[in-house]
């Protein structure tokens, strides 16, 4: 019988996922495909925001959408009607996507002749923040009815996001949502995060968001990142 060894590992629990995510990113870099990981809580308007985004960008970028949900394919059907390449991923009960599942999704959708793939992550502000999917940039949507204090309550999510979209600004008059406080709280968690107020329903602010996104995609394709 072999003797029991004690191995001092000192590795993050997520080490394997982080390595896999780096691999996904370098493969995407080679193919000049930009992957955006879009996160939010349920009901913040991810699918509506995506619909508007696709409408504004589909003549300039070749777009694919990966819809991740615990179950159903209602989101994928909505997006497919816009005429972009779409795949529905089921997480089998899991509340987030990891790098391995993202790779399977990318294989399923096929990244040839695409500029931008958006991964619509499972609606959840906790678990998706822990798992690097291999995306080039992380975006999240915070909607006005959720309240301006969310960056304080979900610090990890806000600290990993490159851009925070504040959605549903058309209902600001009806809620005690303080936009300045919200910006301050986001920047406490992440000084480099862009904060862009939008209303996906009316289209307000959408140009600022799609301009940011298109610029990120071009920079990635032109080796500026």
């Amino acid at each position: 019988m072999k003797e029991v060894r004690v191995l001092e590992i000192k590795q993050s629990i997520f080490a394997d996922n982080d390595r896999e995510a780096d691999k996904v990113r370098s493969e995407l870099k080679e193919k000049k495909v930009f992957l955006l990981n879009l996160m939010s809580s349920p009901g913040s308007g991810k699918t509506t925001t995506l619909t508007r985004t696709i409408e504004q960008l589909k003549d300039r970028l070749r777009i694919g959408i990966m819809e991740a949900d615990i179950d159903s394919d209602v989101d994928a059907r909505t997006i497919a009607e816009l005429g972009v390449r779409t795949i529905q991923l089921h997480t089998g009960g899991m509340c987030h996507l990891d790098a391995d599942m993202t790779r399977q999704g990318l294989q399923g959708i096929g990244t040839d002749e695409l500029d931008l793939v958006v991964l619509e992550n499972v609606g959840n502000l906790v678990c998706p923040a822990e798992f690097d999917t291999g995306a080039v940039k992380n975006a999240m949507i915070l909607s006005v009815p959720e309240g301006h204090d969310k960056p304080l309550k979900y610090p990890l999510m806000f600290s990993i996001c490159d851009v925070v979209l504040i959605n549903k600004v058309d209902v600001l008059p009806y809620f005690d949502f303080d936009m300045d406080k919200c910006r301050e709280y986001v920047h406490m968690r992440n000084p480099n995060a862009q904060v862009i107020p939008i209303c996906a329903r009316t289209g307000e602010g959408m140009e600022a968001w799609t301009a940011w996104l298109e610029q990120q995609v071009r920079a990635w394709q032109n080796d500026d990142q």
């Binding site: 019988m1 072999k2 003797e3 029991v4 060894r5 004690v6 191995l7 001092e8 590992i9 000192k10 590795q11 993050s12 629990i13 997520f14 080490a15």
Partner: peptide, 11 residues
Amino acid sequence: RDLVIKEIQGC
């Protein structure tokens, strides 16, 4: 802030 695998005991 972290979750770290400190040690594995095995053979």
